[in-house]
Amino acid sequence: MPTQAVDDLIHILLVEDSPTDVMITREAFDYYKLLNPLHVAGDGVAAMEFLRREGQHSDAPRPGLIILDLNLPKKSGREVLQELKADPDLMKIPVVVLTTSKSEEDVARTYGLHANCYITKPVDFTRFVEVVRRISDFWFGVVTLPPARS
Rank of each mutant, 00 (worst) to 15 (best):
residue 3 T to S: 12
residue 3 T to C: 11
residue 4 Q to M: 15
residue 5 A to P: 11
residue 10 I to H: 02
residue 12 I to D: 03
residue 13 L to E: 00
residue 14 L to M: 01
residue 14 L to G: 01
residue 14 L to D: 00
residue 16 E to F: 06
residue 19 P to I: 14
residue 19 P to F: 10
residue 20 T to Y: 13
residue 21 D to H: 14
residue 24 I to S: 06
residue 25 T to W: 02
residue 27 E to P: 02
residue 28 A to V: 06
residue 30 D to M: 08
residue 32 Y to Q: 15
residue 34 L to D: 01
residue 35 L to F: 12
residue 40 V to M: 09
residue 43 D to S: 14
residue 43 D to C: 15
residue 45 V to L: 14
residue 46 A to G: 05
residue 47 A to G: 10
residue 47 A to D: 03
residue 47 A to E: 04
residue 48 M to V: 08
residue 49 E to K: 13
residue 49 E to G: 09
residue 51 L to Y: 00
residue 51 L to V: 10
residue 53 R to D: 09
residue 55 G to P: 05
residue 55 G to K: 14
residue 55 G to L: 10
residue 56 Q to H: 13
residue 56 Q to W: 13
residue 56 Q to C: 15
residue 57 H to Q: 13
residue 60 A to V: 05
residue 62 R to K: 13
residue 62 R to N: 08
residue 63 P to S: 09
residue 64 G to M: 00
residue 67 I to V: 08
residue 67 I to F: 02
residue 71 N to C: 11
residue 72 L to A: 12
residue 73 P to S: 11
residue 74 K to Y: 08
residue 75 K to H: 12
residue 78 R to H: 13
residue 78 R to M: 13
residue 80 V to G: 00
residue 81 L to F: 11
residue 83 E to Q: 11
residue 86 A to G: 12
residue 86 A to E: 07
residue 89 D to F: 13
residue 90 L to Q: 02
residue 95 V to L: 13
residue 95 V to T: 12
residue 98 L to K: 04
residue 103 S to R: 07
residue 103 S to M: 04
residue 105 E to W: 06
residue 106 D to A: 08
residue 107 V to C: 11
residue 109 R to C: 07
residue 112 G to V: 04
residue 112 G to A: 05
residue 117 C to T: 03
residue 118 Y to H: 05
residue 120 T to S: 14
residue 122 P to V: 04
residue 124 D to T: 15
residue 125 F to Y: 12
residue 128 F to Q: 06
residue 129 V to I: 12
residue 130 E to R: 06
residue 131 V to M: 02
residue 131 V to F: 03
residue 133 R to H: 10
residue 135 I to K: 00
residue 139 W to R: 01
residue 140 F to K: 03
residue 141 G to Q: 09
residue 142 V to H: 15
residue 142 V to A: 12
residue 144 T to Q: 07
residue 145 L to F: 03
residue 149 R to M: 11
residue 149 R to P: 07
residue 150 S to G: 12
residue 150 S to A: 14
